[in-house]
Design a protein around this nucleic acid. Structure first.
Lengths: 190, 190
DNA sequence: GCCAGTGATTGCACTTGGTGTAATGACTTC
DNA sequence: GAAGTCATTACACCAAGTGCAATCACTGGC
């Protein structure tokens, strides 16, 4: 309250405060009031910016989804649905995910520590999958194909991201195509 | 082993009360106190039987998972991981899912109406997927293969269940293998 | 400089989900 | 009939989330 009440980046400040507090005490032992207080705001203001406590960790998922859709629309029309989806994810991941840097591992561990956060994570990737499926529909692919292809692409992407977090020196695109090969082996025989 | 203490089926009564109330007024407009009252119990007792409000709709997921694992352990060791997983899901689904009958559609619509319930549904299928992956590991399959094969099998099973709900006269096993063929087409080329 | 307007922030009261703890009730066993 | 067990209950409590009205900071017109 001693500070000026009108600092410009409320949303971002809340995200940073939440990230710091979660890293210190864990997700469950941090209250929304705590987060707001560290950001110099109030609980009520937190809920003006985020619909619930979990969402503060998933705010940029929408931007990533938009990036994937943009890459998907720009992908070579000759590509098969699965390949187009994988390429779109790779393209968006290379630019969008690189900035996460070392924070990615912390974030992954944090999500893994709370079933609440896992649930939110799952529904976010489900939304991404559905968006990709819709994007594939624009490419004259049959609905069932889009459903399976989008799910497969996202599964490959997530597996590759996990690989990348464990060894960040590797090239994400390379990891993605390795996992894609693994998927094809698992699904269509050795 | 006292069988009849008070009314013996508190858990079941709570599930039925919840199902009825959710069908009447929707998930969001029913409170836990409402459910408990209709079952002749208290809010506190509800939370003695279910860890939270959503879980009352997913109580039998554990039994289904156990059934799948049993079928998986009994599957032909010569089968490829994906085929073994699909067969296990088909076997468990045929016996366990048939008694849902017409309630299956209501339940699906209810879950579709609430993001809270979708999240819980997603984490339950994720748990099932992980269990299947662990079961496949027992069959000397490499870890990455088990991850992708279990995810693919569950995706196929869910797609087939959706088909079955829309046309319950069809044979679930047939639908499953049709969707499996669709998946292979989507992942490994036309 | 004064005044109205806009939008972010806040205070407050309230509902609901969920938990810890101690007490009560019903039923079994000795 | 006393002791013991276990489900149920009462009660108090915290945290998430919402609706609503009141501020606050800053904008522009005058």
């Amino acid at each position: 309250m001693a500070m000026a009440r009108w600092e410009p980046n409320a949303q971002q400040r809340l995200q940073q405060a939440a990230g710091a507090l979660f890293a210190e005490r864990g997700y469950a032992d941090v209250t929304v009031a705590d987060i707001a207080e560290r950001a110099g705001l109030t609980k009520r203001t937190f809920f003006n910016h985020f619909p619930d406590k979990r969402e503060v960790l998933f705010a940029d998922a929408a931007a990533f989804e938009a990036a994937v859709l943009k890459h998907l629309a720009a992908a070579d029309p000759a590509l098969a649905p699965l390949d187009a989806a994988v390429e779109a994810l790779a393209g968006a991941g290379l630019s969008d995910l690189a900035k996460y840097g070392e924070y990615a591992a912390t974030r992954r561990d944090l999500i893994a520590s709370s079933t609440e956060l896992q649930e939110r994570d799952l529904i976010k990737t489900a939304a991404l999958t559905a968006a990709i499926a819709a994007g594939l529909l624009e490419r004259e692919a049959p609905p069932r194909t889009t459903a399976f292809a989008s799910k497969a692409a996202v599964a490959v992407f997530i597996a590759a991201c996990d690989d990348w977090i464990d060894s960040p020196r590797a090239n994400l695109a390379t990891l993605i195509y390795q996992e894609l090969a693994e998927l094809r082996r698992a699904v269509c025989g050795a």
